[in-house]
């Protein structure tokens, strides 16, 4: 059997989630190829050549794929239908955007967000914001799967010479076009792969107050996240959101500050190894999932933590 993993990258570097997706792919039996569509993405290919356990890299380099528009990526991935039995991508906004189109094109019922592979055709996935875990068996001959990256440890990069095959771009579909983007610039680790995450909720009261978290994050080498309420209130940008509809994180340490612990928030962080909750309400549901709970006013607790680190 042959397996194709679609790489997520920004034309310069691979995104960490690609390595976790490859780890899931390597649990299936068969050769694993990595598909990289992009524009002037030599740096990404050089990085990918070092990945362990890869059969080959399939690369397509064209302006068409510069902004990863769903229609064109789905088109070229689906054109490889006859050569592969499995198509896997990270369950990020990148993967979710085009994989269902691939599935529709090759007439397969896609399986979203798997967290465990039980056999070639049977997987576990969270449903209802992670309140339940379903075990599902796909009866389609081809599988189209997105992978919850926090559930699989990344593959290593000790290789040097994975062969690269270059394929031609397909004709541009011209269905949608890129206008612009505003990407967050940060020196901190990426939220989904950071080993420590500190998140603030509505209790933070303002965007300015997030500097209380920033300063601790800098000392701990942590990423900063937020609840939906904090994002909706405009305290921080949307890419901070952790939860059912935001990012899924599972760091070694997650610190929730001024967050009540709604199920939609828990969906994004309850697989963290150690959870700390700081909340002034001792009945806040977040304490039910916390390993360490501190009932305190965050405006006292955060400066104290900061000064003692």
């Amino acid at each position: 059997m042959s397996i194709l993993v679609i790489a997520e990258h920004d034309n310069s570097n691979l995104k960490a989630g690609t390595l976790n997706t490859l780890a899931a792919a390597q649990q299936l039996s068969g050769d694993v190829d990595l598909f990289i569509s992009g524009n002037n993405h030599d740096g990404v290919i050089n990085e990918a050549k070092t990945i362990d356990g890869l059969n080959q890299i399939i690369s397509v380099d064209s302006e068409i794929y510069n902004n990863f528009l769903a229609e064109d990526i789905a088109n070229i991935v689906a054109s490889l239908e006859s050569e592969y039995d499995y198509f896997l991508a990270p369950s990020s906004t990148f993967g979710k955007n085009f994989m269902p189109r691939v599935a529709a094109k090759i007439d397969t019922q896609m399986i979203s967000d798997i967290i465990e592979i039980l056999s070639e055709d049977t997987y576990k996935r969270p449903i209802y914001a992670g309140s339940c875990i379903a075990t599902v068996k796909s009866n389609d001959s081809k599988k189209v799967i997105t992978v919850r990256t926090t559930a699989f440890d990344p593959v290593q990069k000790n290789n040097s010479d994975v062969p690269v095959k270059t394929i031609d771009a397909l004709t541009e579909l011209n269905l949608s076009s890129f206008v612009g983007e505003e990407l967050a610039q940060s020196d901190r680790p990426e939220l989904t792969s950071a080993s420590i995450v500190i998140s603030g909720g509505r209790g933070m009261q303002s965007g300015d107050n997030f500097h209380l978290l920033d300063s601790i994050a800098d000392k701990l080498g942590a990423a900063v996240g937020a609840s939906r309420a904090a994002v909706d209130a405009g305290f921080v940008p949307n890419d901070y959101q952790v939860g059912q509809t935001g990012k899924i994180v599972a760091p070694d340490l997650y610190i929730a500050v001024g967050i009540s612990g709604a199920i939609q928030h828990l969906a994004g962080m309850k697989d963290s190894k150690v959870i700390v909750a700081i909340n002034k309400d001792e009945d806040a549901p977040i304490f039910q999932v916390a390993d360490y709970g501190l009932v305190a006013d965050l405006f006292n607790a955060l400066p104290e933590i900061d000064s003692k680190l």
Binding site: C132, A134, T135, S138, D140, V289, D291, Y292, G293
Partner: peptide, 18 residues
């Protein structure tokens, strides 16, 4: 195309401390 074989609660977390 897909059979749901079972639905379970996620593994529960051990009770923490205050």
């Amino acid at each position: 195309r897909v059979d749901v074989l079972s639905v379970e609660l996620p593994p529960s977390r051990e009770a923490g401390v205050m």
